[in-house]
Design a protein around this nucleic acid. Structure first.
Lengths: 229, 229
DNA sequence: CGGTATCCCCCGCGATACTG
DNA sequence: CAGTATCGCGGGGGATACCG
């Protein structure tokens, strides 16, 4: 954004100088979503180069938005209170963007890894605790080689995501395609709707099939009303 | 911002692709503030080149945020309803930025023209109607040559701003410096405070002096609470 | 007044490799 | 895992002039 500033004292301008730099809103989004570690942040913005992420984190630190801390030897990035106050800004951005997104579901932007990473993050943990380990296997026929099969392992409140068979027996199989699962996660189509249209199939115990949609949490913007444009 | 997009389907990313491009938030701010004509917009973002402004307006039109219309022969730019829905975003940006601005009042960013333009826009019109024409002369000793004296002419609900004596008799003289007037307008210091500190002086009928602060409207963010950072 | 056209610089950022 | 280092290019955007 060649951010030399706008030369204006207006608060909108001053705020924009910092947080509307390229990638920065997305980095803040990741931090707001709870990502802490460098590579964790990277997974949320996979197309951003590591050096640029590093630059941005430093810029945000200088701006008083981010603070780096060490947790058992590892650096972690936290939002300061000033950073947390950006939540409404990012939220409004997403709320505004939701109808826009709906109008064009760009196939080129479908990204299984990103989707699965979001799903992993959103899983409501409590479920895992009640029923011991649960292993869900996602199968995307249309995903690129090496990204077709995903294992989501819920165990004792912890959630792991694997691209290689962790060896546990699979409790639930979800067979679908990237586009459908993305739309479901985005709130564009309802879970049951996808099932009925046979765009998404389930295999497993009835009880698990019933509870699955309750602990698979959708995008934070899935519920936003989307009036026609 | 080299806006090739972020390659993400997330609504925050999609929204950011459009409205966090360089200058765009400020252009939207100007439109939200009621600017309609091309050169009127330019005055709000004086450091932006006209070709770039033109580009951005077209991009915003393509994005469905702005619509160009012709009013008695002259092109005017309006926010569509999608564009108007950006008000909370820009507002939150300003509210967030206000404390940041306070911490550094960058002298280099003081701009009399911008300030006077903002003041002109904010003047509550009704006053002019009641009392016929009112001419206020602003005198900034520290302003650059040719920008020291400003005439604000309120006449029949219309407000004009001149850099050359329009010839009318002056009803009220305001003598101050750019930094002080900017701080007052930003809500950093109260009007009375500036008066008491003799950083700002008045000359004119007592009645007008009393009413002046009531129809000189301050920055939309003047009232925002600014906790220490 | 309301923009276009052009030119060119510069640096942001993408790519890739590498290190502690 | 958590970043740095380096390099090169592309094009964004600043400056300026000009046109309808």
């Amino acid at each position: 954004m060649t951010q030399r500033g706008y030369g204006q004292f207006c608060p909108v301008a001053k705020a924009a100088e910092i947080i509307t730099e390229r990638w920065t809103p997305l980095v803040i989004r990741e931090l707001l979503m709870g990502s802490r570690r460098f590579n964790e942040l990277r997974r949320g913005v996979p197309l951003m180069s590591p050096s640029l992420l590093s630059d941005r984190l430093k810029a945000l630190e200088r701006a008083g938005i981010v603070r780096q801390e060490r947790a058992n030897g590892h650096p972690e990035y936290y939002l300061t209170s000033a950073g947390q106050e950006l939540r409404p800004v990012v939220e409004m951005l997403g709320v505004w963007g939701q109808p826009w997104v709906r109008s064009r579901v760009d196939e080129a932007e479908l990204d299984v890894s990103l989707l699965m990473w979001d799903i992993r993050r959103g899983v409501r943990r409590r479920q895992g605790k009640r029923d011991g380990r649960i292993v869900v296997r996602f199968e995307y026929a249309d995903a690129p080689r090496g990204k077709k099969h995903w294992w989501l392992v819920l165990d004792g409140g912890q959630t792991d995501l694997c691209l290689t068979d962790p060896g546990y027996s699979v409790d639930l199989r979800v067979v679908t395609d990237v586009s459908t699962m993305t739309k479901v996660w985005m709130g564009d189509i309802a879970f049951g709707e996808a099932l009925r249209a046979r765009k998404l199939q389930f295999e497993g115990p009835a009880k698990l099939k019933r509870s699955f949609p309750t602990w698979l949490s959708l995008s934070p913007f899935a519920g936003v009303e989307r009036p026609e444009r």
